[in-house]
């Protein structure tokens, strides 16, 4: 069972990395969250009967873990020193416009709540509303309404940045 589980995780670890990138600001937090998600997936694996897709199950566990994770309150560093280091561009796709867009993307995502981040992540991963609803366990109607609000929020934020 362990071998099978590790094979699944290795093949789909991109999902975990993306969740960690969206929910964490620092390298240490990302590593901690990554490890925690793997531990929770392992704990939940015996009950996974293949009723849903592997990616659906992984997203669900990863997002639940990220949203409910306890962070000790620490003195926050000056906001301007927070970098978007977790948002790295693949070398061959680098250009200055992309780098600017990444700054906007990073700043916009920081303003979202835990649930909004989960919906946005799934939207950016081209998941349909039906699948987003299945992963998050909220109704499709709520996903639609929430997504419209998030789109307005993001548009407003990006407009401010462009100015």
């Amino acid at each position: 069972m362990e071998k099978e589980f590790l094979h699944i995780i290795q093949k789909n670890q991109g999902i975990i990395h993306k969740v960690c990138n969206i929910y964490c600001d620092t390298e240490d937090d990302r590593n901690d969250l990554f490890q925690e998600i793997v531990a929770q997936l392992w704990k939940s694996y015996p009950n996974f009967r293949g009723d849903s897709k592997v990616s659906t199950w992984m997203y669900r566990v990863a997002l639940n873990t990220a949203i409910t994770t306890f962070k000790k309150s620490k003195r926050r560093p000056d906001q301007s020193s927070l970098t978007y280091e977790n948002f790295q561009i693949e070398d061959e796709k680098y250009d200055t416009e992309t780098e600017e867009n990444i700054k906007v993307l990073h700043k916009a995502i920081q303003q979202l709540t835990g649930i909004e981040k989960s919906i946005v992540l799934l939207f950016l991963e081209n998941k349909k509303y039906e699948e987003i609803a299945e992963i998050t366990g909220i109704t499709q109607n709520y996903v639609r309404v929430k997504m419209n609000r998030i789109k307005k929020k993001l548009k407003k934020l990006m407009l401010t940045e462009d100015e």
């Binding site: 409910t68 649930i115 989960s118 366990g137």
Partner: peptide, 10 residues
């Protein structure tokens, strides 16, 4: 368990 929907987990 943690594979439940978010509401149940919370």
């Amino acid at each position: 368990d943690v594979a439940c929907d978010l509401k149940g987990t919370l």
